[in-house]
Amino acid sequence: MLIEVKNLRKEFAVGGILFQAQRETVKAVDGVSFSIKAGTSLGLVGESGSGKTTVAKTMLRLHEPTAGEFHFDGQDVFALPRVEMRKLRRRIQIVHQNPNASLHPRMTVMAQIKRPLQIQGIGDRTTYENQVLDMLNRVGLNPEHARRFPHEFSGGQKQRIAVARALITAPEFVALDEPTSALDVSVQAQVLQLLRRLRSELELTYLFVSHDLGVIRYMCDEVAVMYLGQLVEHAEKPKLFANPLHPYTQSLLSVVPIPDPTMRHRDRKMLTGEIPSPKNPPSGCRFHTRCPHVMAHCKTDEPKMKEVESGHRVACHLYE
């Protein structure tokens, strides 16, 4: 396993700007474990506030973890001192959702893609520019784009630049945080196709964070479903889509709009209510407040993640 995350936790302190006593902790990620095989993609899917982005950012130590471990190729990432961590960043990279925020508005494309090479000391001054031009070509941009600034590009092109910058250090693992959510569907298709091609050409391993089950299905080999900071189900893609076990996954799959009017009258497992606040999550199983199959002990006992068949784990009292 290239990636092994064990019992990852991340808490944020919120509020209490004036009075310490009013400070509350939000358990954004509360005990998440998974592993990813080299060369495969894990999709992390969930609704807003489920903690999926926090998982990705904490793995990269853009947030410092509260607890847990992340082993990358045998190294304990969370234990690495600053200098070592910086060296490791060459091998693990992230692409953020919004390229308008992640690209520097006053740096040319050349300057910002070159920057990681300079920081990491990959090659030397004479080779930087050629490496950048090669990478631009790979992501479908032209050499003359190198002299321009981000505002001169469309949304899809900006995301290509962000991808180029992430891949310039030849990383093995890339976390993609909703990389196409800000894009229109026709442009999303271009970027998704690019990401699939790059994965096979460069033998990359992806953690693909998205709220869009269609995108996850197109991009990933395995899928993990998050709800309120925890994983509720994790399976190989065909198993998850053909046979979702957790009531939350079942509902999610049944209500996602299908672009086919003949499917309009299918059965939908509608949920009532909305995702509760992570400041004050429900006791026991966090999904019990919305679950159609809720039982008495769901309200008190937290279900453990359990492998029900090979390559299919679920955390639900129905399967115990």
């Binding site: 469309s154 949304g155 899809g156 092109q157 229109d184 569907v185 026709s186 442009v187 999303q188 298709a189 271009q190 998704l192 196709q193 869009d212 089950l213 269609g214 995108v215 996850i216 299905r217 197109y218 991009m219 889509f241 799959l253 996602v256 299908i258 672009p259 086919d260 499917m263």
Partner: peptide, 24 residues
């Protein structure tokens, strides 16, 4: 046609999406 083919669907596996080159 391009638009409808470019949507990754949650209800079935798609090998390829239709690509409309360029942008608006």
């Amino acid at each position: 046609r391009g638009l409808l083919g470019s949507i990754p669907r949650a209800d079935r596996d798609m090998n390829e999406l239709t690509i409309i080159e360029g942008s608006v």
